[in-house]
Design a protein around this nucleic acid. Structure first.
Lengths: 201, 201
DNA sequence: ATCCGATGTATCGCGACGATACATCGAGGG
DNA sequence: CCCTCGATGTATCGTCGCGATACATCGGAT
């Protein structure tokens, strides 16, 4: 998931780790962010896999005689997506399996890069997400009705609030799906070729 | 957090790991659960710390000559809270610092065991949680108004939905606080002694 | 002149997770 | 009567995210 988000952001423009982290917070929905303890290892993994490269300016121009401690390299590093990285990103962007929507976090990131995603893929993901959340809702509903008596007042409140939230999410997704379909019908004859890439490099 | 939840559940009655996990799912708000990969290590940590003990029936009654592989011990294990565990639980139940409400997950677990929590502590936690969520809301609001133009339609939708959810959570918390205060005023002269333990073993 | 907050890179230990394996047992159907 | 199947049950492994922490640079305010 982190990998996907990083690829998506670097796909737009090269960036420092610091900037990357800030953008990531936006992409993650504004609330949760990602820590440096996750970000830097991820960047190193991706670099090792050849998905990104570092445009690294010389780490220190001829350090001036009185060498400071300098435990490790401390120069600004700009990360750039490679050709393989772009390829990987488009591969991930086309995925429609459960991993794309079962986890809400991943789904949010997929949403953030929907402009790189073909319409039919968008619809499949939105519908998959809705099914997942509907299943959660039903589970919560039955569990709530089965245990209503034996439960703490506060636990009950928590579950009630959770149920309402999930319910709202279903309605929200339905609106997104509807507007997606509406745009789709005024757009093309509804059955285009199977290979449609709205995004070209 | 896991530690707190486990102590709370075992405080009610001894349990197998399997049952513990199911109850944990309820306590966690009905949606997310905890994996065995988290649960068993946590149990072992807590056992090492002396907070719980295992009522372990003899792992295998005189294995019958034709010894099966038996890679590790595979017998049912019942976990029981110890006196130190109860002490630790009451200690945690009295905590009112940011760690009690800054993380939503932890807050949910605290809610689940509110019946073991003194009224004034309950109020402090609820109010702390509300402040935290309000801060999130303000952050989201300003970020949304600052970047409204430059944002993807989908990202915008995601943030809008997130903002509404957070807003609803604030209202929900306010209701809880109000009803808590209402009960409190009809109960005792509002300023009882500082040491009030509704829960006794 | 100095201090402070924003920018920036990096590591460590802890712990949560999904995947996986294995074991037992009751119920039901062949 | 056996056999499979789903629920119950214990356990480990590698991967990875996190908070805490440290360190460094730079611009502007005091």
């Amino acid at each position: 998931m982190l990998e996907f988000a990083i690829l998506g952001l670097l796909h737009q423009s090269p960036m420092h780790g610091y900037e990357l982290r800030k953008q990531l917070a936006q992409v993650l929905g504004g609330l949760r962010s990602i820590s440096y303890g996750s970000l830097y290892p991820a960047l190193r993994r991706m670099q090792a896999a050849g998905l990104i490269s570092t445009d690294e300016p010389p780490p220190r121009a001829l350090l001036p005689a009185d060498a400071p401690p300098l435990t490790g390299r401390r120069g600004k590093v700009v990360y750039t997506i490679t050709a393989e990285g772009k390829e990987r990103f488009h591969e991930l962007v086309g995925e429609t399996g459960p991993e794309a929507y079962d986890d809400g976090g991943f789904f949010g990131v997929r949403l953030a890069f929907f402009r790189h995603t073909a319409r039919d893929v968008r619809l499949r993901i939105l519908e998959g997400r809705r099914r997942t959340v509907e299943r959660q809702r039903e589970g919560l509903r039955t569990s709530l009705s089965r245990t209503r008596e034996r439960l703490d007042r506060y636990t009950l409140e928590l579950q009630r609030h959770g149920l309402e939230s999930v319910d709202r999410e279903v309605r929200w997704l339905s609106e997104l799906i509807d507007s997606e379909r509406a745009e789709s019908s005024g757009d093309r004859p509804a059955v285009p070729g199977p290979e449609k890439r709205p995004d070209t490099d």
